[in-house]
Each structure stands twice: as structure tokens, then as C-alpha cells.
Design a binder for these strands. Structure first.
Lengths: 255, 255
DNA sequence: GGGCTTTTGTGGACAGCGTCCACAAGCCTA
DNA sequence: TAGGCTTGTGGACGCTGTCCACAAAAGCCC
């Protein structure tokens, strides 16, 4: 997993001390980004002074960085480097590093939502409504945990503290599309929807829904955190399914 | 404690751009630290070239920094500045920033354990063993959550990801005294002990203990995280007691 | 089309950070 | 008293985020 947090002064300067790519940085070595096509419809001109969609490129670079090093690996200068652009160019699209981070966070949250949706999709074939609703809740937990373990960097990015900003928004608030998966729901709304389905299918008493939501949120998120970098680190993935199974039992039995 | 807070790099450089305290840094403005007394037994000499207990001073500065800014606010140079020492001096006591952070983390963990113990102490007066055991578990949860909200910076410090280091150690492992409260137990061991007491008092079936531990860990920790910088941010503290109450009901009813 | 403004990227600079190296001051022991 | 060990100093390096002034491309209007 965490091999090398990448630069950031990390440990030793053993990697690339001075050389890097200092003086030979020319605008010509910029990679031919095709994303600018969609602006003019024509082929890109030879000159690449204008990047085309730098904002998106920076966010994608940030996601890549976050994927393999978490929030602290999202370094503004490195993102611009990958986009083939000078550091200051980022300030035309973001107020600063925090702003970039926030966009990367939204993307990470969206990725989490999609991972959960993928898991939910597998339950579509179940005919029995009650069984389907239960399987859906289980899928929510499984997707959440699987993502946390498979994409630890992105998961941490999704929940990094960031300058007094609320993360995913309350489940009762309208969803920010940037944080949502293809269904338009953010991760926590997906969980709420799963509980709604259980109530509707009659496998969860309505009176128990609020408490169940609370408990499910906390326990799934807490488990992920404890496993990722807490005392439970290194828990075998086989247990994930078992834990998700337990989750639904917990919710149904009430609290 | 801290005589001269100096200035703090904190957020942006917008505060004091240039001046700082450049050339007038003299060894004479170092505060007369009395901690070096215990080395010689005599009064400290006039010369303060030797600090006396720099390691401890740096950790304490780190705790102070973490308390009001979380892990990322623990800046090595600022810690040395507060200790009245040149940045490199830290390297005589710590391998680097990560190493300092780890020590600060241990201290934060210990503070958490002590906060929990303080809450536990309040339950000592209860006569009925079953009631006492239940109150103790409730106290564990309350103490954990209260600390998370009252000392958010330290709490985040306690659980910050740090170079592939396990945090509090497994509950089954021997306790690291540096992480423990006055009872010698770390936060998670305190929870385990509370569950043990419940089993012993006969209010928790032994077969349900493992699952209960899992659930209690995850839900309390997850709740704290979600409230601190997740979608639940800003939850009124009044609810904390209610949540702790729920926690015990949950554990007893099983999962 | 030519000249204007607006957008977007460049170049250079600054302070702060973590870290490394060589050296000096203090203390301890032979 | 001479040497050696520990601990703090001074100076440097490369990295970071951010600010400023300037230049290139694109859009707009006549």
C-alpha cells in the first residue's frame, strides 16, 4: 500500500535531488491534449499556449496524486507539472491549493458514490422486495468498505478536513452533483435511500429508521477509518463481506 | 507556559511578510528553562547553550500546535522556535518531523485515554454491579466523544495517518505506556475493559462480546469522525449523551 | 480585417518548510 | 588536563504555496 508518500520532502532526497527537469522545460514538451478539440470542433492548432481545459486536467492530476498518496500528496506544483504548465497557471482556475483540493475531494466523493452504485447494481436481480432491500443495504456497506480499502488514498481525500467545509452535505440537503454518482446521490444519500427501500418493503419499522441511519453511518465509516489507519489496520478483506452482513442484521434488529 | 508565542506561520503569509525576527536572534533571549535543574542538582549556570530537556519541550510545543491546528499544524521549525532553539537542534532528539509527530501522537492518545478515565471515574459510586458496568461503557463512549469535540485538534492528531504506523496497537497487544492513561490502558483497551466488566456482571452474554467490541469501536469512532469534519458537523453537544446512551442499548441488544 | 478588451499562461520573485553538512560549545570521563 | 561524546549553531539546498508584472491567444466590435 503506502510505499512512498512521494516527494513532499518525504524521507530522504534520494529520489531526484537536483536534476528534475529544470532548465529544459519548454512549452513544446507539453503533451498533445485532445480535450481542447471540443471547444472549436476543429483540430487543435500547432500552438499550445492555451491548454484547452486546464481546470479539468489539474483536477485529474490531483485525483491521480490523491489516489496514491492521499490528500497531502496533492501538491499544486506537481499537478501543474503533470498538466505541462507553469505553477501559476493554476491560479487562473483555482483560488489556491485549498480550492484545488476541494474539487479533487468532490471527484473522490463521486468515485465513492459510483463504487457503491456498482455494488448496488448487483442486487437488481433479486425478486423478493424484502430480500432486495436488504441486499441493497448490504451492498451499500460493502461498496463503501471495498472502496475504502481498494482506493485508500481517494477515500482519505474524500473525508479530509478542509478549511471549514462540509463534506458531503447533509442527506436532507439537495445533492451537489459534483459529489454524486450517476444516480445523482452522494454516498450518504445512497445509504438513506437503501434504508427507505427497507421501510417501504416492510423489513424495517419506520420508527427505527432514524436511529438505523445514524448507526449505519457511524459504524461503517468508523470501521473504514479504523481499518485504514487505526488499530484494525490490515484486516483481511474476506471479513468485509461478513461485516456488511452483520451491518444489516444490526439495523434490522434495531438499537 | 509558552512565554512568547512568537508568531505562527499558521495559514497564509498575509500576516507579517518580511520582518519576522531575523538578525536579532541571540542565544541570550532564551527563556530560563528550569528543567535542566534536575540534571546537576545545582542552580542552572548562566550559559544556556544546553537546553536541559529539549525533547520534552519540543513534544509539548507540538502538542500545543496540534491542539489548535491538528496534525498539519505541527511544524518542526515552529516547535523549535517555541523551544528557543535553532531548527536543526530537533534532529538531535528526533529522526525528523515524522518522528516528532509520532511522539506528539502518543501524547494525544494518552490525553484521550485520560479524558475517558475521568468520565469513568464518575461511575464509581454506583453500587449495583450491572448498572455500574453499563454506566462504565456509557462513560467510555461519552469520554471518547467529548474529547473528540472539545479537543478536536488533538483527536485528529491521535488518529492521523503516519507513515505506516499502527496507531494505538491492538487491544490484545501489550499497551505502550506512552499511549496510555494513568490506568496503563490505551483508549481501545479501556473500551475492551468496559465490555469485560459487563460480561462479568452478567449484563452482556460472553458470546456477544466480540461483535459488541467491533460495533462499539466502529460506531463511536465513526460518529466522532463524521461530526468533526463530515456531514454531521455541528451536531449539538447535548446529543452526545443521548448517543452514548444508545450505544449501550445497542451493545446489549446484540447485533 | 484591424484594433480593442478579456482571458489564460509565463517568468521571476518571496518567505516558509524539512533536511543535510560542517563546525563549535558544553559536559564527562580517563 | 586531554580527549571524546553529546547537543546546539550556522549556512545551505530544494521543495512548497503564493504574489506581481508581463505576454500570448481568443473573442468582440466597428
Amino acid at each position: 500500500m503506502s510505499e512512498k508518500p512521494r516527494q513532499q520532502a518525504a524521507a530522504s532526497g534520494a529520489g531526484t535531488p537536483g536534476s528534475a527537469q529544470g532548465p529544459d522545460r519548454k512549452p513544446d514538451d507539453r503533451k498533445p491534449d485532445e480535450s481542447r478539440r471540443d471547444r472549436t470542433g476543429a483540430a487543435p492548432t500547432r500552438s499550445t499556449y492555451r491548454h484547452g481545459d486546464l481546470r479539468r486536467a489539474l483536477i485529474e492530476a490531483g485525483i491521480d496524486l490523491a489516489r496514491q498518496g492521499g490528500p497531502e500528496a496533492v501538491v499544486l506544483r506537481e499537478a501543474t507539472r503533470r498538466a505541462g504548465v507553469v505553477p501559476n497557471a493554476a491560479y487562473r482556475h483555482f483560488a489556491g491549493r485549498q480550492d484545488l483540493l476541494q474539487s479533487v475531494r468532490s471527484a473522490a466523493l463521486s468515485a465513492l458514490a459510483e463504487a457503491m452504485e456498482a455494488e448496488i447494481d448487483k442486487t437488481a436481480a433479486i425478486a423478493d422486495p424484502g430480500g432486495q432491500a436488504r441486499a441493497r443495504l448490504r451492498a451499500v456497506g460493502t461498496g463503501y468498505l471495498r472502496f475504502a480499502f481498494a482506493e485508500t488514498g481517494l477515500f482519505r481525500m474524500a473525508f479530509a478536513p478542509l478549511e471549514g467545509v462540509r463534506i458531503a452535505g447533509d442527506a436532507r440537503e439537495p445533492a451537489d452533483p459534483a459529489n454524486a454518482g450517476r444516480s445523482g446521490l452522494n454516498p450518504f444519500q445512497l445509504l438513506g435511500a437503501a434504508l427507505d427501500a427497507m421501510v417501504e418493503a416492510g423489513v424495517l419499522p419506520p420508527a427505527r429508521r432514524p436511529g438505523a441511519e445514524f448507526l449505519a453511518w457511524s459504524s461503517v465509516h468508523g470501521l473504514a477509518m479504523l481499518v485504514i489507519d487505526g488499530p484494525l489496520r490490515g484486516m483481511p478483506e474476506i471479513q468485509i463481506e461478513a461485516v456488511s452482513q452483520r451491518l444489516i442484521a444490526m439495523v434490522e434488529k434495531g438499537l
